[in-house]
Design a binder for these strands. Structure first.
Lengths: 170, 170
DNA sequence: CTTGGAAAGTCAACAAGGCTGACATAAAAT
DNA sequence: ATTTTATGTCAGCCTTGTTGACTTTCCAAG
């Protein structure tokens, strides 16, 4: 995965990190890393009869307990039909609780049950273990760069929406 | 996406970048960034009647012209039935050429046709544009860290296999 | 030279998880 | 009183992954 800069294609400035080779390498790294990044939770999910979509719901409901369906839809950016299919199963199976909103009774506030928290913790542990090893091996400065680049890859509007939905809570 | 380190959970050393919050943030960034990262080519592919799986084939065949089916299978890590479905269409449509190997006539050497190269270039341009903007905004040192962390996320065996298949050519 | 195994291709069936479109109900907002 | 919003649901389609079974071609080792 490591390749020397192409000789002779040197621009006048320090822009060697923007060569086609570097960009291609970044693109391929995203593909391979994302695949392995999802592999550990996928195995666990499979053993429990769930899929990656269920993982996402568990993650974000755990992340923001009391989240509404609409907020979850905005985060996941899928159709409500698609979300509903996995959410319904999680509610039926007793991993997610769906309660009528107090202020707005049309809304449903989602939380994890004890069982849901347990599975979420198991999935999270696996994913965090891989991330921790990677962070650890790469070092704090690399982690800083990793975050900066990934943030920039995200659409600006989506960046704002995520901040609104996940960070600042009214 | 930015959150302060939790107070009180400070280990004696400089391991603050390994806190649960930092790991969780890294995990979420992978999810959001990968999604937007694939969005541009997905739109183009859709307009041409292809999917993400076709993109991967075009990418790696372009990357290593003459690649065999087995090598491609090893890179993509899918079943041959799954690969064959998309590969067959690309060959039928005249984007990929499949030629009997010279040394080993059981093998098929895959290359892009002119049409295939054109679509690959279009897809690549879109993906590179996003990556270039991100790299540019984050700067060369961040890019270095980005690469280091992603490399570490990949399974070591897969890392070796990729190097063998994509870098060193006999 | 024969035979075993490797490379490629194919058929069938299934599952996950996206999508669209059409509707239904309850509750809030106007 | 009416319209809009939040949620849920049915039905059907598509892509892309899976397993399992089987064939053809061809290399390589006995």
């Amino acid at each position: 995965m490591t390749q020397p800069a192409r000789p002779g294609v040197r621009s006048g400035e320090q822009l060697l990190f923007l060569t086609d080779d570097q960009l291609r390498q970044g693109i391929e790294l995203m593909f391979f890393a994302y695949r392995d990044f999802t592999a550990d939770p996928d195995r666990i999910l499979d053993a429990h009869g769930y899929g990656r979509a269920h993982h996402r719901v568990l993650h974000f409901v755990n992340r923001r307990p009391g989240l509404t369906v609409n907020e979850l839809l905005a985060i996941l950016a899928v159709t409500k039909q698609s979300l509903n299919r996995v959410l319904r199963l999680l509610v039926e199976d007793g991993l997610v609780a769906s309660r009528v909103g107090r202020r707005d009774r049309r809304q449903r506030n989602l939380t994890l049950t004890e069982t849901g928290r347990a599975l979420e913790a198991e999935l999270s542990a696996a994913q965090q273990a891989r991330m921790r090893r990677a962070f650890s091996a790469a070092g704090p400065e690399a982690v800083q760069g990793f975050r900066q680049v990934l943030e920039q890859i995200i659409d600006p509007e989506m960046r704002g929406r995520i901040d609104r939905l996940l960070e600042r809570r009214e």
